[in-house]
């Protein structure tokens, strides 16, 4: 041991010192991208979608964007906690409830009217505090080898019936599930929603997120699963047609199961650079950006700008028969978590 100790002595410590200096150097240079960052984007949207949009925006305008990604409700809550000190300029999220919550708290500035005008007004905030960018549809994924298409339920509400025991998968902790529960509350009332959730609790296999649900259906672990449509499309994209052993079922005739979720974006009142923030929003709804979203096999969501055709994998937007629930009816989903706790799903 003593030989070793002598070999390893002061010169190594000099090395340690150099390493420490190197550490400071690395930290100083790594976290910052090459472009001078000005905008801070808090995102609850999928990272790959956002990365694509951000790099296109940076290229087009020369304005740098730093992204903080998380789940929609998490990021919204974070902005609320950060309050006036929040570094966020723009909030862009998957589902309307979390951005509606920020609007309710008065944290969002009005969106430029020209930006709002690009999107049909029913997909924007009624008070103009956020703009709709993309839409996704709630669907039922199913495994045709386990259940026939004809045996699938007419309504989402049917899934709480005892005959669905063990045949359904849900991800109650995924933030995409919350708006759906909220929609059930809006259409059927709180008591019915709780009963429905309790039925689901008895019937369903629980997964962490929609990715887990769709994968389970695809491999035959469970016959059906409640998901957003594009998770299935992405699974199919990753596995290829040959390995896709599942299909999707659209709830129709205005059933609550066919709810359409709106992904929206807004500018924070506390933004230090509202002008560039508004430019980013305008870019999100611009024809090139919307077309890019539709054409790249990344998001599989419906672009909301009229005249842009969605990815051909998706059922055409106008053929969907969603329930008649407006974004303002949907509101925020603050009460939904309590319902889920009560039903024992969280």
């Amino acid at each position: 041991m003593s030989l070793l100790e002598h070999r390893w002595s002061r010169s190594n410590f000099a090395g340690l010192g150099v390493a420490a200096l190197a550490a400071c150097g690395l930290l100083a240079c790594t976290p910052h991208p090459a472009v001078a960052a000005t905008l801070v984007l808090y995102s609850g949207q999928h990272e790959q979608t956002v990365n694509m949009l951000v790099s296109a925006f940076e290229k087009k305008t020369g304005i740098g964007v730093k992204v903080h990604s998380g789940d929609g409700p998490e990021v919204a809550a974070q902005i609320i906690q950060e309050g006036t000190a929040s570094p966020a300029d723009v909030f862009f999220t998957e589902n309307s409830p979390e951005i509606a919550m920020l609007a309710e708290k008065g944290l969002l500035a009005k969106v430029d009217p020209s930006t709002l005008a690009e999107i049909p007004s029913k997909y924007n905030a009624p008070d103009g505090t956020w703009v709709g960018v993309l839409a996704r549809e709630n669907v039922l994924a199913y495994n045709p080898s386990m259940i026939a298409a004809s045996a699938l339920p007419a309504s989402l509400m049917d899934l709480a019936k005892p005959k669905w025991k063990g045949k359904i998968a849900i991800a109650p902790s995924d933030n995409d599930f919350l708006p759906l529960v909220n929609a059930v509350v809006v259409t059927h009332g709180k008591a019915a929603a709780l009963a429905w959730l309790k039925g689901l609790k008895a019937n369903a296999k629980i997964y962490d997120d929609d990715e887990g649900v769709v994968a389970a259906v695809n491999r035959g672990a469970v016959a059906t699963g409640i998901i957003n449509n594009y998770y299935w499309a992405r699974l199919q994209q990753e596995l290829g047609k040959a390995k896709t052993h599942s299909d999707i079922y659209h709830f129709s005739h205005g059933d609550v199961g066919g709810l359409i979720n709106i992904s929206g974006a807004g500018v924070l009142k506390t933004s230090k650079d509202p002008k560039d923030a508004q430019r980013f929003l305008a870019f999100l709804v611009s024809a090139p950006a919307q077309k890019m979203l539709a054409d790249t096999p990344v998001t599989f969501e419906y672009p909301l700008r009229p005249g842009i055709a969605p990815n051909p994998v998706l059922k055409p937007f106008n053929e969907l028969q969603p329930p008649a629930i407006s974004v303002s009816q949907l509101g925020d989903d603050a009460s939904v978590v309590t319902l889920l706790h009560e039903a024992g799903l969280l």
Binding site: A20, G25, T30
Partner: peptide, 25 residues
Amino acid sequence: AAITPAEVSPALLTAATLSSLGYGL
């Protein structure tokens, strides 16, 4: 590309490695 948040590039790999090393030290 559909499901990776950011496609792997040498630049991204280097950046991630350097920041891991930096934070490690």
